[in-house]
Design a protein around this nucleic acid. Structure first.
Lengths: 130, 130
DNA sequence: ATAAAAATAATAATAATTTCTATTATTGAT
DNA sequence: ATCAATAATAGAAATTATTATTATTTTTAT
């Protein structure tokens, strides 16, 4: 199936690329809806999945039971706040040779790993003090 | 609420402790059902959640959208096969000071991290060659 | 043995996501 | 520009994992 252009898909990608808060499918839906009032949630899901499969965006699992989407497909780590649920990028170097460590005395073959951090974000931390 | 004994809960824990394949709630349900034919899935969920909250078992997220449960509550790492979906324990040392690394130049406060590995398990790897 | 409190079974409800289908939009060829 | 093919859409229904509700049954302290 030879992938045709669609302005909905374009708008979804456009919107996501202007964001660094890792929205969910529903978050994307709510916003893109302003430009395409009768876009359907199914279309948002389908296109997010398609873009992720094409490698143009990344699907991010931060353990809250909802998929988030990230325009940055380069390897980096995420932080999720247990208080407000926000997702942020972390500025740390890659965790080196962790896959090789895991591969030692392992029967199968390690392809990669998923790592994310949780805790309390700066905003919530400051709010707690008041 | 003063936690009363229940043979369903006992059976659930018993079953889980005899396992090292990290079953899901539904997997537990299917098995415990053999002993308690009219146990309900809700009871399984409620007790797994209760046992996890008590710290007697661990809830494990391996990114497949389903919660798995592990009788081993000590910190260790998991591998999930992209082929068959099986979950296995990995025998590696703790990833040292990864939280501290993340905390450096981070606004909030890192409480911990979730890390799991994926790839192809030994069984599936061997099956592919044939 | 009894009664209060907790746990259960069965079912309904919810949330995230996927699938289905009839209609619409895109595209490559005329 | 027109036309057919086929991919994409909207809207709705279906699915999956999980949680909540409620009437009934177990457990346990007296």
């Amino acid at each position: 199936m030879a992938l045709k252009y669609s302005r909905q898909r374009e708008a979804i990608k456009e919107f996501l690329c202007g964001r660094k808060d890792h929205p969910t499918a529903d978050g994307v839906y709510m916003e893109v809806r302003k430009e395409f009032p009768n876009i359907s949630l199914g279309t948002v899901y389908r296109n997010l999945t398609l873009l992720a499969d094409l490698g143009e965006i990344a699907r991010v699992n931060v353990g809250d039971g909802v998929d988030h989407f990230d325009p940055n497909t380069k390897l980096h780590y995420h932080f999720i706040c247990r208080e407000c649920g926000c997702v942020q990028d972390l500025d740390i170097d890659n965790i080196v040779n962790i896959n090789e460590m895991a591969n030692a005395n392992f029967d199968g073959e390690i392809g990669g790993n998923v790592t994310y951090f949780y805790g309390i974000c700066g905003k919530c931390k400051r709010r707690q003090r008041s």
